[in-house]
Amino acid sequence: MQPPRSGRVRSRPESTDTRIAEITARQRGYRTKSLSVAIVYHSGYGHTERLAKAVATDAASIDGVEVVSLDVEAAAKAWDTLEQADAMIFGAPTYVAGASAALKAFQEASSTALATSSRATRRSGSTRL
C-alpha cells in the first residue's frame, strides 16, 4: 500500500535565478507579482453584500492582491475597471434555484463587452459565494 499523497500540487519548476530574485525582492519589501480582483455582486436584502465584503477583505489581506468590489449597478458603469481585472468573482442570492435576475442581466451585458476586449482570451470558472 502506498502512503497517501499530500494535497500540495507542485507547479512547473522555475529557474534558480528567478526564485532568488523573488526572495530578495520580498525580503526588501517589494511586490514581486500583482493580481487585480473584481468582485461583482447583487444583494436583495444585504446578505450577499456582507459575504462579498468579507471575500474582498480576505482577498485584500493577501500581499500583491488589489481588490475592487462593485454591486451590479456600479459595475455596469465600470467596464474599464472590469476589463483590467485579472480575476472576477460573482455573487448573488439564489431565487428559484438560480442567480438573481439582476446578476444574470449584468452577466449577459458583460459577456458582450468583455468578449470584445483585448483580454478576451482568459479562462472562466464559476463558484457561488
Rank of each mutant, 00 (worst) to 15 (best):
A109H: 10
E73N: 15
R50V: 07
A97G: 10
Y41L: 04
A101W: 15
T121F: 03
A56G: 06
I39D: 00
H47S: 04
P4G: 00
L114Y: 12
I23M: 04
A75N: 02
H42N: 08
A120D: 14
T116I: 13
A99M: 14
P3Q: 11
K53L: 05
M1V: 09
Y30E: 15
I39G: 01
G46A: 05
A78F: 11
L35C: 05
L114N: 03
G125L: 05
V67F: 00
I23S: 08
P13F: 07
R28I: 06
V67K: 02
F90Q: 00
S61A: 13
Y30I: 15
A38Q: 07
W79M: 14
L82K: 02
E66D: 13
G98D: 14
Q2W: 11
A113N: 05
T121Q: 12
R119V: 07
L129K: 13
R12A: 02
I62D: 03
R128Q: 12
G91Y: 12
L82W: 03
I23T: 01
V67E: 00
T16E: 14
A59M: 08
S117A: 11
A76W: 13
T127Y: 15
S15Q: 11
G64K: 03
A76E: 11
R5D: 12
R50A: 13
R31E: 08
M88S: 15
P93A: 05
R5K: 14
Q2C: 10
Y95D: 14
A85R: 10
A76I: 04
T116W: 03
K104W: 04
T94Q: 01
P13C: 06
A56T: 05
A52I: 02
D86P: 01
A74C: 02
S15G: 07
R8Y: 06
S34N: 15
V37I: 01
I62Q: 07
P3H: 10
E14L: 11
M88D: 07
A92C: 15
S11R: 15
S6D: 08
I20S: 11
T121Y: 08
R128V: 14
A75C: 06
Y95I: 13
A120F: 15
A101K: 15
M88T: 09
D17G: 15
S15V: 06
A92S: 15
P4T: 08
A92L: 13
M1D: 15
K33P: 00
T94M: 00
S43M: 06
A59T: 03
S117R: 13
I62G: 10
I62T: 10
A109V: 11
E73D: 12
D86Y: 01
A105P: 10
Q27N: 13
G91H: 11
E14G: 10
K77D: 02
A75Q: 04
D80E: 06
A109E: 06
E22Y: 02
R123E: 08
S36W: 07
T24M: 07
A92I: 14
I89S: 01
A56I: 00
I20M: 00
V65E: 03
L129T: 12
Q27H: 12
A85T: 08
A21S: 01
S117L: 09
I39H: 04
